[in-house]
Design a protein around this nucleic acid. Sequence first.
RNA 1: CGGGGCGUAGCUCAGCCUGGUAGAGCGCUUGCUUUGGGAGCAAGAAGUCGUCAGUUCGAAUCUGGCCGCCCCGACCA
Length: 504
Amino acid sequence: MSQATAISPTRDKDFPEWYQQVVRAADLAENSEVRGCMVIKPWGYGIWENIQKQLDAKFKETGHVNAYFPLLIPLSYLEKEAEHAEGFATECAVVTHHRLEAQKQPDGTTKMIPSGKLEEPFVIRPTSETIIGAAFARWVQSYRDLPLLINQWANVMRWEMRPRLFLRTAEFLWQEGHTAHETAEEAIEETKLMHKVYADFLRNHLAIPVIPGAKTENERFPGAVDTYTVEAMVQDKKAIQAGTSHYLGQNFAKAANIQFLGRDNTRQLAHTTSWGVSTRLIGTLIMAHGDDDGVIIPPRVAPSQIVILPVTPKADTRQEVIDACEALAKTLRMQTFGGEPLRVHVDKRDLQGGAKNWEWIKKGVPLRLEMGPRDITSRSVAVCRRDQGPKAKEFVPKEDFLRNVTDLLQDIQDSLLKRATELRDANMKKLDTLEEFKAFFGEGSEGGFALMHWAGSNEEEDKIATDMKVTIRCIPLDDEFAEEGTCFLTGKPSSKRVVFAKSY
RNA sequence: CGGGGCGUAGCUCAGCCUGGUAGAGCGCUUGCUUUGGGAGCAAGAAGUCGUCAGUUCGAAUCUGGCCGCCCCGACCA
């Protein structure tokens, strides 16, 4: 039996359905019995562990420390910052009871009835600004206590109307950085620093190019003064917000009363920031790099970078082949890539070779090695790169492979970034008129990122969003977008182009 | 919360219109064959047909209530 592609439908045919099939075929996650919540399976969680480890190192390098705050937030905390509370009001899970009472039913079964009503309900954190703010208020007394640079790895819950695995789930894993500073300048610098950390991480670890920029007022985080975002383009040419960094001004300091005695002996409010990325990064990665045979995981974050497939056609040489594979794996693990020991897996399962091979293709392992009796004799290995076709295979001397393996992984990492960058650049257009804009996003057109001069109002921005389902993804920070022009809608002067796109 | 659809084996679904004791493909188990490639043949395990009630001699099938899920909108990392 042979199929043209491992995943059906293909990306061209039906991208959303392709995405769901890839998540399943690559064994990354599944829907759970709890609506909107996912079970992240080992292969998917392995990606998250690598993301976590590598980002965490960057947070530490930039002076942050980890801490942990409660899952439950007193309802009253959310009431302290009106704009923030309203922003999350429609998606909060609320805990109202603290015990259950067993109630015997006439049919012999037992029903558990919530009892012990709470005086004040708790909200399951949709984000932790308020509760961390309360802690900060206790911790900060003097300007000498600042800056306070804290990160937390946690789960949060936002009761989403329409969940999709990794992209939008009711519960998701993320990290949220929260910092407090003496001055606005320092806080803004922190916001931008972490924004840059995210952009670099996406580019160098996930092989996804992003456009760093600021959000418009309409798209800002509820309660923030400024929101910075990294926007990526995925293969259906839609934009996805992959990470955000917020300058919160003194809004949350005011709400939580984070005050300190300054150098001038006056009481002052701190300036705070918050920033986060979530398991959505995994969804972004799938849509950025996947092909019609499954996901392709960039080597830096792949749970296994190399899978060795023993080829055992005869029972009497089977053990010899497996021993040779184990020995090769051991040798490989002594090398490092991206500062970490190579992650190598030997798939010894007693399955047919082809079936095994396709499984790892679908799971997106960067390198597959095949080693059989003939390879042992000829001291070679068969090497398959996931960024090339499923049939592409090269027999190379084992010693050469061992010498070049990290270069090979880097080459795959680079080729993924290159491919993603080319896709984005090919679908990013400077347009000048409303007609061009409508044609770009209209029925039947490809879409993509439209770089437009913009000087419209919030209401005009909203109208475009409603009429065309297109929003301003960001106001880019890079100089390459700066140029004089006139707004395509209002004709008013503009000094920079902004990115319009349909988004996830 | 509006509009549509669906609940039958681990998964995807057929059967329902026209009521008569449960089916397929994939997956799983075992055996034989095959083996540098998602294999073939044979045998086998597996379902209170979402739930509660009604109609009926008899309900997966007809009627009604309830529950759950999916898709399309509004909301969003």
